[in-house]
Amino acid sequence: MSNWLTLNAVGYSYGANTVFHGLTVQVPEDEHVLAIVGPSGIGKSTIVKVLAGHLSPSHGEVVVCGEKVLGPAPTRPVVFQDYNLFPWMTVLDNVVFGLKCAGVPVAERRRRGRALLARLCMDDTEKLLPSMLSGGMQQRVGIARALAVSPNCILMDEPFSALDNEMKESLCQDISSLAAEQNTRFVIITHDLTDAVFLGNRILTMKSARQALEYRIENPYHPRPIDFRYTKEFFAHIERVKAMLTGSNPSVIGEKYVLNCYHM
């Protein structure tokens, strides 16, 4: 099976600072969501910027959905931690911004924008300004804005860190459904292991600039049932990822270790 995401010995450094080095990751087509976890300051956001093309890697090659990353592209938009919506535009104008850039006619982009808002249960917000919405709603607009351009892949940089738990769980649920119903892949950066385990088919744990470990969750497929959060397996996954991060797991040896675990 081919891979939708390939990082081939990718490194990023500025000056004498090496943020990460020799990162090699391959994510096969049937794994729709890659979650990246790790302590803050380890360079998770830098990886997103490199994937987005906002930063060019110092070494190596990045291929996302068959496209070599050379700069920013609408095929892989970013959902930002602080939403980063355009505060002067209405919700609908924000959502259809990418379509405007793509040259889609006004009527058609409005129709598609409205459909997306409806899909995310926000039909009555189209004329509002982003600042009139709660944080969770703003992040939904951010996700809708990214989805509108029918991208191959959406990059999310700590998308839930400013949201309360309930909102976070409902957004996770939305993303899981979208991963199943659309042919969209997600890269999600998070410091919260429950989000990573709930959403990720594969979890990349960044331990240091030169060490990253991978963990796979084969089941359940997307959309993942809400109940998944409350299963014993779920907590077992979290424990194992946590162990990988802290390095207290004796079975994790060497640069890379893929644990193929378990069936539900």
Binding site: G53, F86, W88, F97, A102, R145, V149
Partner: peptide, 24 residues
């Protein structure tokens, strides 16, 4: 960040001017 987001969505220089720079 706004300019980066606009570029991510493939905004041309003209759209970046009319939709990001001027409103800011």
């Amino acid at each position: 960040q706004h300019l980066l987001a606009a570029r991510s969505f493939g905004a041309t220089a003209r759209i970046r001017l009319t939709d990001v720079v001027i409103p800011s």
